[in-house]
């Protein structure tokens, strides 16, 4: 968990980096950064002779936060006194952490339409971003909730698309978060006679499914919404 740091000297910066990697046994999936404390300088009459200085760097292996996240989830679950829960954290080696939680009766960790799950997601990404300089994202998935939700939303999108097309009226969906809105937009991308956009401000942002010829018929209303098209 804690940062692993060493200071290394080498004939050149490149050499020092190589030495540091070997000493700390850097694994392939670990990221590192280094800070040059002293550049190498060539002394009089070649390297190291009369005032030549070696390069010195501070080498740091960037910490990975899988354990940190696992601990948090376990702490939350501990409060309920349950033990039969499996927590897995993956890191995509870029900036995303995926937390998969599996077990029986985990409804409390999902909440209404995923509310508890998104709350945990929000809090953990705040905590993690406080610890790191670069932006990281945390995604929580309880008992494959997101996969099932995606299926439901896709079905709903198709159903409502047909309705919008047959009634020739725009349909406003209930407010959704970005993950859910994206699924709707994606599902209906191939529908030639319809287009989708989002309207309103978070957390009340909604997807609108609208027939293409709706624009001409109701020009007045449409002009008000064009600013929100995404």
């Amino acid at each position: 968990m804690e940062k692993r740091v060493i200071e290394v000297t080498g004939k050149s910066v490149e050499e020092a980096v190589e030495i540091a990697k070997k000493t700390l046994e850097l694994k392939e999936n670990e990221k590192y950064e280094y800070e040059v404390l002293n550049e190498e300088t060539k002394g009089f009459l070649g390297i190291g002779f009369l005032g030549g200085k070696k390069a010195r760097i501070r080498f740091t292996i960037k910490p990975k936060y899988e354990n940190y996240l696992t601990k948090w989830i376990e702490e939350i679950i501990d409060c309920t006194g349950r033990t039969d829960v499996e927590v897995k954290v993956r890191h995509d080696n870029r900036n995303k952490y995926f937390i998969d939680i599996n077990g029986e009766n985990l409804g409390f960790l999902i909440g209404r339409r995923g509310a508890a799950m998104y709350a945990i997601e929000h809090l953990l990404s705040l905590m993690l971003n406080k610890k790191t300089d670069s932006l990281v994202r945390v995604k929580v998935n309880v008992s494959k909730f997101k996969q099932e939700r995606q299926k439901d939303l896709e079905e709903m999108a198709i159903r409502l698309a047909e309705k919008a097309a047959s009634t020739k009226k725009a349909i406003f969906l209930r407010p959704m978060n970005s993950f859910e809105r994206k699924i709707i937009h994606k599902t209906l991308k191939t529908y030639r006679n319809l287009y989708t956009y989002s309207k309103g401000a978070e957390p009340n942002r909604k997807v609108v499914i609208s027939p293409k010829d709706f624009k001409k018929k109701f020009n007045k209303e449409q002009t008000q919404t064009t600013g929100d098209v995404h």
């Binding site: 409060c79 508890a116 709350a119």
Partner: peptide
Amino acid sequence: AIRTVLKAV
């Protein structure tokens, strides 16, 4: 979000 987590547990 904190309230939601407290409610959940």
